[in-house]
Design a protein around this nucleic acid. Structure first.
Lengths: 157, 157
DNA sequence: AGTGAAATTTCGCGGTT
DNA sequence: AACCGCGAAATTTCACT
């Protein structure tokens, strides 16, 4: 992984549909070289996928909440995590330090639906209590933290 | 927005680099129709972008934390949010209900760097206190919640 | 890493229902 | 309105140097 790879990654984080030709122009490489590098980055597990991002409110998911999951004394973390994963409303799941086992991000259509989802969460075996933080607005999300890899390409060659 | 649009969106959430031809085969439409629909979805702000997802640990960002931001009495939320956004380590920022104004997700290389980042957060004007939850493992993240739009295409035509 | 070439895709446009 | 086919330009994706 060199500086060129990092520049390619940065560009693909900004625009996941950038063409190889376009990326090549950005970093100063031929399309086929970019193609090869990207293939290696994917194979190495550096790039794990490409996803369209959808405005949740436009698809009827206007309510977001962060929910801390307090486990019972006897809970098996992996089983709880799996059960959390089986709920489509649970978008992300982090195992955390502290007296909560997990923090999950939940996305639903209405507060009514949020209430129902919290019920489902509490009914999971191994879940003792939930602590819900309602999101009022998402200021920014999943922002690419491009560790200073945004210098323009060289020209002299 | 009809069922076809939702199917296209679902497919693009799974694979943001799917070609229009491929999407057309998936949903049973011509490439040009898909092209037109996707263009409209983008223009309507339903699809807000396409991003490559990178395994953070492979790019030296192995430490994740969720940080609650307690504001001072006189804090201006928008100013605080903007200041949070100026830190590259802050990947997401949610304004929340409760006695914390924001919850942010922070991604850094080491716990040392986390400590420095928390210092930067506390030094922001309008920030009274921070409450940090260290992420031990990410079980899943940014999972596409495809509201049951995954039926296969029809064949009889 | 680059070149070259064939297969594929993009994307605007006209025509159809 | 939405869909499709057409076709030129661009891109992808190889094998090869």
């Amino acid at each position: 992984m060199d500086a060129l790879d990092r520049r390619i990654i940065a560009a693909l984080r900004l625009n996941g549909r950038a063409t190889y030709a376009e990326l090549g122009r950005t970093v100063g490489l031929s399309a086929s070289s970019v193609h090869e590098r990207v293939g290696k980055l994917e194979a190495a597990g550096v790039i794990t996928g490409y996803h369209a991002v959808v405005d949740p409110s436009t698809v009827g998911l206007g309510v977001t909440a962060l929910v801390g999951i307090q486990p019972t004394d006897t809970a098996a973390d992996d089983d709880v995590a799996e059960a959390l994963g089986s709920l489509v409303e649970v978008e992300s799941c982090y195992a955390v330090a502290g007296d909560e086992a997990f923090v999950v991000k939940v996305r639903v259509s209405t507060v009514d639906e949020l209430e129902r989802t919290l019920g489902r969460l509490r009914r999971i075996d191994g879940v003792a209590r939930t602590r819900t933080t309602v999101v009022l607005s998402t200021r920014f999300e999943a922002r690419p933290n491009n560790e200073g890899l945004d210098e323009p390409p060289e020209e002299g060659a």
